[in-house]
Nucleic acid binder design. Structure first.
Lengths: 220, 220
DNA sequence: CTATAATGTGACCTGTTGGTCATATGACCA
DNA sequence: TGGTCATATGACCAACAGGTCACATTATAG
């Protein structure tokens, strides 16, 4: 966390510095953010920066804290939804309220998420285009499946593709992260537990989270 | 793409260089990869590197191409699944075969995904812990919902949380990327089309992609 | 053996990075 | 007034970045 020196600063100055930091992180992410630029854009001296914070990560963490507090306040101010609505309605409300909050602090949100979630999307079109083939293949697949009556036709094709890509991304991330912790990746990956987890995730993609008549049967 | 000079090289040398590049990207991502290190670990001279490639991104793109080709070959070698299986089985087969492929080329996969999907997960525990509160809140929420019979009890709590987090991540990423393209973000975000998209995504999370008896009704 | 073209090389360039530190400033108090 | 203490400053540092280029080496062809 920031040093006491920073907390003693007049609010206005603190805000100036944090705004410069937010701009920097939104533009360059965490690793590539430059303390020199933050300092320059804040109008403070280099030395001062290090009297306020330990290092770059320190500012970043402080930014996260600020956002968190503001978000909590924001949610409090909204009329809380009907206390008896079900999870799905509640979740939907959260998502949408979150979007509204993002509208109020676009750069901060961008800065936080770009680091927390990923920078890959910001490197320029070259990379984005790379997965087009996959997308196209999936699109074909889903169109066909809809004709065969397998996929819910009320979900449009583009969206269904997005859903499937989301899941393959999520699973890959999961496997990559969990797998890296293992001694024997191969064993872990082929273990029944891992396979079951994947199966269940795909099951949820197929049938949803809501409780219905259908039962989970570990198929395949 | 790499210059002709590189393509003229004996296969072995090319492999050495690309392996060094893969190692580097897996370890540091794209932006923070160092050509100096790649050069050192390849055992080639700095000048040679620039006779082979335009720049860092060039090597990276070449790496993606190589992986892509290898993956295509890999999929070809697998016994192709029953041609008449439905999308969901097919998708499941793809996911699992993809995992097997990843097992064969772990560092390459790591390098590609870390850049394509995100670096946030690699910065160390400090950041990972940041979203714990959200996770805890969601866990509580879901447990309650299960007791009330809203959520499919065959899906365990941890997984359900993962599903919800995945979706809130996906939606945020979607909104962030699409929103940034818009002139008037506020207008776009509140437009019926955007709202409908979100609704449908949440609907899919709730009921799944598979066609069932239930019909989509734009609730909320 | 010679001339020419293709490859290979690493010292060197400029710019930027994160970080330090001796010194200057000025508010507060005796 | 003089003294003390928190704050502010920017020149300075070593490390490293991506990139260049004059020159050395090797392969090819006549």
């Amino acid at each position: 966390m920031p040093k006491q020196t920073f907390l003693n600063l007049p609010e206005e100055k603190r805000a100036t510095i944090m705004n410069a930091a937010i701009e920097e992180f939104a533009e360059y992410g965490l690793e590539n953010a430059s303390t020199n630029r933050i300092v320059k854009n804040s109008g403070i001296a280099k030395g001062s920066f290090y009297q306020y914070f330990e290092d770059k990560q320190d500012v970043f963490m402080h930014m996260l804290e600020l956002i968190e507090h503001e978000e909590i306040d924001f949610f409090k101010d909204q009329h809380p939804p009907d206390h008896n609505m079900d999870v799905f309605h509640y979740y939907r409300w959260m998502v949408k309220t979150g979007m509204e909050f993002g509208l109020a602090h676009p750069r901060a949100i961008q800065a936080a998420w770009r680091v927390l979630l990923g920078e890959g999307l910001y490197y320029g079109k070259n990379l984005a285009g790379y997965r087009e083939k996959t997308t196209q293949a999936l699109t074909m697949m889903i169109k066909l499946a809809m004709e065969r009556g397998e996929v819910d036709p009320s979900v449009d094709v583009v969206l269904a593709v997005m859903v499937m890509e989301t899941w393959s991304n999520a699973i890959t991330t999961y496997v990559l992260n969990e797998g890296m912790k293992q001694k024997d990746v191969l064993k872990w990956m082929r273990s029944t537990k891992t396979q079951e987890t994947i199966d269940k995730l795909l099951y949820v993609m197929e049938y949803g989270l809501r409780k219905t008549e259908s039962e989970f049967t570990a198929s395949s």
